[in-house]
Amino acid sequence: MEEAIKTIHLSKFYGETRAVDDLNLSVSRGEIFGFLGLNGSGKTTTIRTLLGLVKPSQGEAFLLGKKVVAGMTDIWRDVGYLVETPYSYPELTVEENLSVLLKLRGIKDHSRVKWIMQMLQLEKSAVKKAKHLSLGNAQRLGIAKALIHKPKIVLLEEPTNGLDPAGIVEVLELLKDLAENSGVTILISSHKLAEISRIATSIGIIHGGRLVTTIDTKGLESRLRKVLLVDGRHKSAMQSILANAGYEVKQKRINERSVLALEDERAVLVPEEIAAFLVHEGHPPTLLKVEREDLEAFFLRTIHEKGVYRDHGHELH
């Protein structure tokens, strides 16, 4: 499949700091790519480089097969974006902010303003000045500006910031619909894996400016660690018995109480065998539960396992 977004050995240095370091990114057309990283991991710099706002120190960036260079104009007809917090002209109304952008994009069809306001439920705020908008509506306006010209590629940074839970679902569904039904390629940068994994087709995790891993979200489930939680009246005795039987047993705190945690595949796959074994040993469990690692934990673990850590420009391993 043809790549909509591509970077080749992309790097951006600010003095000694490597904001983006040898990044090779490839996003196919129609894909929703979740670009995940902690604050300062290089997400914003990557997006700014893709938008031609920042010149790469090394490497190249391509959108729809065209190399991104300073001063180019044609490519931006097909690209919508929301970089960092959305800001609009405070003295202009929502409708005016959108029509101003439409004009700058050279689009004469003014019905797009109404269309996008309807799509993002901004109609009630149409005549409200941008400076009087709530955080959620300011965010909706930012997304509206990114989508008003029906782009082929959308680059969004933290698009659900400030939205209430219903708003988050609504915006994510809208983006999913754009990708699935209109073939729009979407790159969403965020630090919320749980949220992004709901719509992303693949996820790239960036840390210290480097792409740590790329995951197909279909295979995400299999990469999440599972753990068998066991509790009983004589916990220390149970721990000894299980350890003697060859299981690696750890203690984990859940709801302010300590339980035994077994990551062993045998235990996770056949927990009833552990139950039978403990009953046989005279220590019947009062809790037996297979728990899946949550996505945020997986995200942090991935960064810690695969990441190259930097502290003030020094590499730590």
Binding site: L51, L53, T73, D74, W76, E84, L104, R105, G106
Partner: peptide, 9 residues
Amino acid sequence: NDLLALPTS
């Protein structure tokens, strides 16, 4: 930011 990646130069 809104002015820097537009079809307008």
